[in-house]
């Protein structure tokens, strides 16, 4: 974990959730910056230990291996409420549970039970949810200009030092590592789903099969990263035009879908693009 500072601009970098996590912010004192550093790192470590399906002792692993009710805390209940809402909104294009799917999950206050054979995977929501939580943590400490970037899922507040916004490059699926465009955002989240780096890894929950609809990448700008992440994955599964129609149902969300042959975007996406 590394914390560097230039004046009152701080940059925190640490590895977690199999990626690089970055937190840029402006803090009034060094002590405050170090407090945010400690709390953010601790929260992410706890979150990963709790929700990673790759850690045998995690809550998700226990839910997946148990055929009985598993007790969950209030935060997990809220997370599942969100899943419930998004599964409904996306018509099943987003579903964190393998067949027979989220609709077969039994819930009661403080507990959950999966049907036999089903597996819970929060990979499509966990990192984005963590971005939002760390973002909120930073804001609760009164930090003004904040950027949270966990493996290219980004949420920002305020402006980058010396600029009028935070400038987020959109990765070109044809040339990973390069940007095809840049968006300027001040209080938004930006998330991208694509299979150009790991072909076939996005599956359509409705069929269980890898998505082959010509989509290469979907970028969504939304009010928070969890919403942006879920919408980008669901829009990728749906493809154009249904994917764009889904995003337009969500107030304030904009999207751009890049297919093998074309680019589609919602009406106001261009307002964020730096020309």
């Amino acid at each position: 974990m590394v914390l560097t500072a230039t004046g009152d601009d701080y940059r925190l970098t640490f590895p977690a959730m199999s990626t690089t996590c970055r937190l840029n912010f402006r803090a009034a004192t060094n002590a405050l910056a170090r407090q945010v550093q400690t709390e953010a790192r601790a929260w992410v470590a706890t979150f990963e230990a709790k929700y990673s399906r790759f850690i045998p002792t995690s809550l998700v692993s226990r839910i997946n291996t148990s055929r009985d009710w598993v007790e969950v805390d209030e935060e997990t209940d809220r997370l599942f409420d969100l899943c419930n809402e998004m599964v409904f909104l996306t018509g099943g294009a987003f579903d964190p549970v393998s067949a027979p799917g989220w609709s077969a999950v039994e819930r009661r206050p403080g507990a959950v039970r999966l049907p036999a054979g089903a597996r819970l995977d929060l990979g499509g929501i966990g990192k984005e949810y963590a971005v939002d939580r760390v973002f909120n943590l930073a804001r609760q400490h009164g930090l003004l200009d904040v950027l949270v970037d966990f493996g290219q899922d980004v949420r920002v507040y305020g402006q980058s030092p010396g600029k009028d916004a935070w400038y987020i490059g959109l990765e070109d699926p044809a040339q990973p590592g390069h940007c095809w465009s840049t968006v300027a955002v001040t209080n938004h989240a930006v998330a991208t789903s694509g299979d150009y780096f790991r072909p076939g890894h996005i599956r359509d929950p409705r069929t269980g099969q890898p998505v082959h609809n010509g989509c290469r990448a979907v970028t969504v700008i939304a009010g928070n990263c969890t919403q942006a992440g879920i919408l980008s994955t669901a829009a990728f599964v749906l493809g154009p035009p249904a994917g764009l129609e889904l995003v337009q149902l969500c107030l304030g969300a904009e999207a751009c879908i890049i297919t093998e042959t074309n680019r589609y975007q919602t009406r106001n996406f261009d307002a964020y693009v730096v020309h």
């Binding site: 840029n24 950027l147 290219q152 987020i168 990765e171 990973p176 930006v190 790991r198």
Partner: peptide
């Protein structure tokens, strides 16, 4: 560019 949004690591 302050960050990049994408699907590569």
């Amino acid at each position: 560019i302050d960050a990049m949004s994408g699907a590569s690591p």
